[in-house]
Amino acid sequence: MYFFQKNKYKIMLVASTAVLVVCIIVGSAINRRKAGGASDALGTVFTPLQSGVTGASDSVSGFFNYLTNMKGYEKENEKLREKIASLEDELRKTDNLKSENERLRKMLDLKENEKDYKTVAADVVAFEMDNFSKSYTINKGIKDGITQSCAVITPYGLVGYVSEVGRNWAKVCPIVDSKVSVSASIMRVGNTAIVQGDIGLMEDGLCKMTYVSKETGLEVGDSIETSGSGGVIPAGIYIGKVTEIKNDVTGVSQEAVIKPGVDFSDVNEVMVIKDN
């Protein structure tokens, strides 16, 4: 008894270390894609709080942004009116082309190739704690039909995919995160490559494309979309544009810097594709 009293700090230290080392080993062995009980409980309790704080802060920041940018909004409004007029004109032309396309399809008896994805809208409620990662937490989870690996998009393109999911929350790994890689296709030439996050580009909201054959003829300004290989993320989702091309370290293939369509510093609402 005396021994335990005398050495209680050391015993506590050794015991805690042993318990935590076991946790690390077990935690590493378990696939954490579907959140464990404790992790899910933490998410379930804190997600509504985070949602409230994020909502309130967005409102406050939106109000101050409005005040500071009032003059700019007038000019922007004028430009947008002009753009709407030109877009309406374009829409009329597109409608004509669409109806012509449908008529020709019917004539050739071709099946419609487009697929309508079932999506669920979600708000970004929290962000990663350390600066090495850029993950988001959204306020939709298993109860809304979201599963691990679901693709996450905005009207501007691919955001990333669901890396972990709980009852009323899910973690989204964006394509700029260094742990993410996505199979991609170069739209102009149709060749495939891998788009992945890079910790050196992450802070600038950029990612890179690797394993691009030199014969591909990749050019700055080429548009990149998902290829659908691997079956995780559906094909045809816009990723971004090539801004820089360089030879990789082996000299065999090329590497390109991609500017994603999504502005990752300003992602507040996303759509999760449920049936990929």
Binding site: V21, C23, R32, D130
Partner: peptide
């Protein structure tokens, strides 16, 4: 911190 973000449960706790 581990439950929220880490892939190795217990690493940050330790």
């Amino acid at each position: 911190v581990d439950l929220y973000s880490s892939t190795h449960v217990g690493l940050n706790a330790l």
